[in-house]
Design a protein around this nucleic acid. Structure first.
Lengths: 147, 147
DNA sequence: ATACGTGCAAAGTATTTGCAAACGG
DNA sequence: CCGTTTGCAAATACTTTGCACGTAT
C-alpha cells in the first residue's frame, strides 16, 4: 500500500465512489487526477483551463458536477477566498487540515497549519456556548517569496 | 458627543466621505443608515430587499456602488461566507474587529471575538516567515439558540 | 455651473439545470 | 440493457458597467 498523499487520496476517492454505486467516467477521472496532484485549492474554471491546456477539454458543467459529488462525500473541501470563485481541494481522512494565505502581491494561495491556532479555535466552542463543526482561517498579506 | 456604536460609525462615515469630496445623496444615506443599525453583515441583495420592504426602493447598482465606496475608504469590511454572496459590515476606527459563525441550522450569522485567537494569528507572521495584513476566521456549526 | 449621485438596462462572470447522446459494467 | 456520465445550450444569480438624467453645493 502507498503512503504518498496523492495516491492515498486517489484510492480513497475510488473506494468511496464505488461504494456509493458510482460508475467511473472519463471526465471525472481527469478532474480527480488533477486534484490529486495539486498542492492547494483549484477553482472549477482553473480546472477547466488546465485540462484544456493538457489537451483533455471537459465540459464545465461536468466539472461542477464532479466537484459537487466529491464535496458531498467529504472528499474535497470548498475554500472561499473572497474573489467570486469557489476553490476545491482534497480532504484527507486523517483530518490533517490546513489553512490559507492569499498573497496580495502575487495572488498565490499558500497553505499553512498551526497547532496553536487549532487549539485556540477548539477552545471557542466552550467559551462561547456554540458547537463548532468546522472552521476556516484566511490570511491576507505577503507570502514568503514576496514578503 | 455620542458613544453609541451606530452613531459613532455614521458620523465617521460622514466625515470621511466629506473629506473625500463626496456629496450626499438619498440612496447612499439609506444604505449607510441601514448598515449603521446592523449587528452583523448584510449582502447587497439583502440591503435591497430590506430597503424595498421599508418603502425606500433603491437601484441595486447604486447599492453596489455605495458598498464599493465604503469599502475603499475602509468604512466597511467584506465578509465572505462561502455562499455566492459578499456581505458587508461596518468597521470601527478602533480596530475592534470580530469574526463569524454561520449557523448550519438557522443560517444566522453570529459575531464573536476572542483574544486568544487573535494572539495565535499574530504569532503566525513570525513563525511562517510571511507578512499578515489581515485575516478572517469563519466557523460553521450551531449557534447558541440552535446548539 | 459643475461635479457627484442615481436608476435603468445591458453586459459579464460563476454556477446550475435540462436534456439527449455516449458510455460502463 | 439500464443507469450513470457527459457535453451542450439555456437558465440563474450576483455583480459590474455605460449612459442619460437628477441633485447638492
Amino acid at each position: 500500500m502507498s503512503t504518498d498523499q496523492a495516491t492515498v487520496w486517489r484510492e480513497q476517492v475510488g473506494l468511496v465512489l464505488a461504494r456509493a454505486g458510482r460508475v467511473r467516467g472519463g471526465a471525472r477521472d481527469q478532474v480527480i487526477e488533477l486534484l490529486a496532484a495539486q498542492p492547494c485549492a483549484l477553482s472549477a474554471v482553473e480546472i477547466e483551463d488546465e485540462l484544456r491546456a493538457r489537451g483533455r477539454p471537459i465540459g464545465r458543467a461536468s466539472i461542477y458536477r464532479v466537484l459537487d459529488l466529491l464535496a458531498e462525500h467529504g472528499l474535497v473541501e470548498r475554500v472561499a477566498v473572497g474573489d467570486g470563485q469557489t476553490r476545491f481541494e482534497r480532504v484527507h481522512p486523517g483530518g490533517h487540515h490546513h489553512h490559507h494565505l492569499v498573497c496580495e502581491q502575487c495572488g498565490r494561495l499558500v497553505a499553512f497549519d498551526d497547532p496553536g491556532l487549532e487549539r485556540a479555535i477548539d477552545g471557542l466552542s466552550e467559551r462561547l456556548g456554540i458547537r463548532v463543526e468546522s472552521h476556516d482561517v484566511l490570511l491576507r498579506g505577503a507570502c514568503g517569496r514576496c514578503g
